[in-house]
Simulated scan of single mutants.
Amino acid sequence: MSDKAQQDIHVLLICGGGGSEHDVSLRTADFIQGELAGAPGIRLTRVTMDDSGRFLDSNGQVQELRSDKLLYSATGSAQPVDYVVPSIHGYPGETGDLQSQLEILGLPYFGCGPEASKICFNKITTKLWLTALGIDNTPYQFLCTNTAEESAKARDALAKWGTLFVKASNQGSSVGCYRVSDEEELEKALQEAFTLSSYVLVEKCLKVRELEVAAYTYEGELVVTPPGEVCAPEDTFYSYEEKYAEGSRAQTHVVAQGLSEAQLGWIAEASKRAFVGLQLKDLSRIDFFLTDEGEIYLNEVNTFPGMTSISMFPKMLQNQGHDFCAYLSALIRSAVR
């Protein structure tokens, strides 16, 4: 190993995960890998986690990260790992499971810790925490079992609110999210959601503007960007396909227009309150709903937002005047130092 390689910070980029968001995790990893390619003093190794939890290199050979903080190849050679970027959307990256393993190994990593990840990935615990922090969120019911008694709560909500969103509680990127307006659709959505999660959230469907904020740590300070806006076609909602498909019909605006100073102030305050109160680290994308009546609801907190060619987080960071490579490189160097 050369003297330069010995001095470089070795970053392990883990992507994939084998879950429903495997492919978009690869695309986020492509973005991060491309950004770090020009970072001086940082050397990157990329592995893809398969559905068995194995790390595979670009040749499909197994790599193993062991308790001595060394990454072992199939040939038995090993190299020390200094820092990890867990670029996995959904399980086990956003759920806190992978972060717990890294905590046990004593390896610093990019993103939120195990507890914050677990809280924010579960839509029900997120709502409970937001309420405790004094942050308004959309009216909801939650179902803890797939039984007739619990389903009756959903039917009551449908009768009261007219149109609902049915959401599997622990899926990301709008996976397991269904918009329903009659009992037949409701029953089908509940059955599908319960196949993905043991808890299901039923939310009131509101006519809203969808606003997104990037909140992240830059040079030791919390930065909250002005909200951007996602404008999905009126005949649909911002589904997994609309978020990530190259042919998405959704339009995004890095800076939302026409918001009052009071609205901007509350969104910034709620974002800071959520970031600090939930003990987030390094980055998050915090999503809000603005109703026609002017009500503002915090919809969800994304502890590892997408970073594809059409994703909002890197666009809002750049619009803030910050370079993503410089941002992540500084976090890496600070953590390793």
Score class of each variant (00 low, 15 high):
D68M: 02
N122L: 06
E115A: 12
L98W: 01
L102W: 02
L128Q: 10
E115Q: 13
E115Y: 15
Q79N: 03
P80F: 05
K127D: 04
I88Y: 00
A74V: 14
G90D: 11
I88W: 02
P86W: 06
T95A: 07
K118R: 14
L71F: 09
F121M: 15
P108R: 06
I104K: 09
S87K: 05
S73C: 08
I104F: 15
T95S: 13
Y109M: 06
L71T: 00
A116G: 15
F110G: 02
T95K: 00
S87P: 07
A74G: 09
Y83D: 00
A132S: 12
G113F: 04
G96Q: 15
T131V: 02
E94G: 06
E103M: 07
P92M: 04
I119Q: 09
E115G: 12
T95N: 12
G111V: 12
F110D: 11
L133Y: 05
L105P: 07
G90V: 05
Q99V: 09
L130Y: 12
P114K: 07
L133V: 08
N122A: 03
E103L: 02
I88P: 02
N122G: 04
A78C: 01
P114L: 13
P92C: 08
E94Q: 06
S77I: 00
I124L: 09
P80T: 08
Y83G: 04
S77E: 15
K118I: 00
G76Y: 07
G96R: 14
P92Y: 04
T75P: 01
A74T: 04
L105N: 11
L71C: 01
G96K: 07
G106V: 14
S100K: 01
K127F: 04
D97R: 09
P114R: 11
I124Q: 05
A78E: 01
L105R: 13
T131I: 00
I119C: 06
K118F: 10
C120K: 02
G93M: 14
F110C: 07
F121L: 15
C112T: 12
G93N: 15
A132K: 12
L98F: 09
P80M: 03
H89R: 09
G113R: 10
L107V: 04
T95E: 11
S87N: 13
D82E: 02
A132H: 13
P114H: 14
K69V: 05
L130T: 01
I119H: 09
Y109P: 00
F121G: 10
L107T: 08
P92E: 15
P80K: 10
Y91W: 15
E115F: 15
Q79M: 14
G90T: 06
F110K: 06
T126H: 02
Q101W: 12
Q101M: 15
